[in-house]
């Protein structure tokens, strides 16, 4: 067996752009950071399944329902890729999924706010999946851990399909006009700022990123947020939906600027932002840690039956 590399040797490997292929090539710090990044990715994909399912049930046609269900199947497969790698790195997949407390799952807060209609589901496909696309696209492009980087090949094509579902339906609903368009605008009004928040602390507050240092990802939070804004804002404008952001040119470069204080107060029950009430990132972190309205219900959706089945199964044997 190869000896674990020293910190200096490891740093050299990372800087050379070489890929890491197994845990024998890692330092314990890298392993810890890789696992943390994988857990966030796996949890995000996993929880999107119940979140989307509860809304896909309200699909307006069989074809639309089929597309919704196919997207959920994709998300579960993506979760599986992350948890499978975690298992190879020594974690217990079953424990991770079925024995953790709901509050300790590490997915974006946005999924804790209920998606209550087909309209909200397609906005999630257009905005949340775009966020996932930016985050995973960056990892696919830059990640120093070979097995994950390669596992993301198919994931990117599938996320593209989810985006297409979101965009096609958003456009269709907007063109329908009237109350359908108003409902779409209301969904965008609360979901847009939640997606902006998805990318986390601004670079100015995040002095040091171990994930970047280890090349687990390549772009900073603000760079990822800008990428997201550069795709979502023009699309919404094109289909006649208003979003609180605009483009500015600074030093010859396009910069996307938010038209509201970031971060600010959010009422999850009412699904309403108060742009008149700026808050601090510490306040946001408290809200995230407390989790939102649907956290426990969604985790219970897959945990409860697992434990029930296991109990009856074991009693019989």
């Amino acid at each position: 067996m190869e000896a674990m590399p020293t910190a200096a040797e490891f740093e050299k490997t990372i800087q050379s752009g070489e890929l890491i292929e197994s845990s024998s090539e890692m330092t314990p710090e890298y392993l810890r950071e890789l696992k943390h990044t994988l857990i966030v990715s796996g949890d995000t994909e996993l929880i999107s399944a119940p979140a989307y399912y509860l809304a896909a049930k309200r699909a307006p046609s069989i074809n639309a329902f089929m597309t919704g269900i196919a997207i959920i199947q994709d998300e579960l497969a993506h979760a599986h890729i992350a948890y499978h790698i975690l298992e190879e790195l020594g974690e217990d997949q079953e424990k991770l999924i079925f024995s953790r407390d709901p509050k300790s799952f590490r997915y974006p807060y946005a999924f804790d706010v209920p998606l209550d209609s087909w309209t909200e589901l397609v906005v999630a496909n257009g905005m949340y999946d775009q966020a996932g696309f930016c985050l995973l696209g960056d990892i696919h492009d830059k990640c120093s851990y070979g097995p994950w980087k390669r596992g993301l090949n198919k994931v990117m094509a599938e996320e593209n399909f989810h985006l297409r579902n979101g965009r096609t339906w958003m456009k269709r609903i907007s063109q329908a006009g009237g109350s359908a368009k108003e409902e779409l605008q209301r969904a965008v009004d609360w979901m847009f700022p939640l997606s902006v928040e998805w990318f986390g602390l601004p670079d100015s507050l995040k002095m040091h990123s171990t994930q970047l240092e280890y090349r687990l990802k390549g772009l900073t939070n603000d760079q990822l947020r800008q990428w997201w804004l550069s795709t979502v804002v023009p699309y919404c404008e094109e289909i006649g939906i208003k979003v609180p952001a605009h483009k500015e040119t600074r030093d010859g470069k396009d910069v996307w600027q938010l038209d509201y204080p970031f971060p600010c107060e959010f009422d999850a029950e009412a699904k309403r932002w108060d742009f008149g009430k700026p808050i601090t990132w510490d306040d946001v972190l408290v809200r995230w840690r407390d989790r939102g309205p649907r956290n426990a219900e969604m985790v219970a959706m897959f945990q409860e039956e697992f434990h029930k089945f296991r109990k009856t199964h074991h009693n019989g044997s």
Partner: peptide
């Protein structure tokens, strides 16, 4: 038969 992309393909 359950192609989830059928509408997109037709469009």
């Amino acid at each position: 038969m359950g192609c989830p992309a059928s509408d997109f393909i037709l469009d």
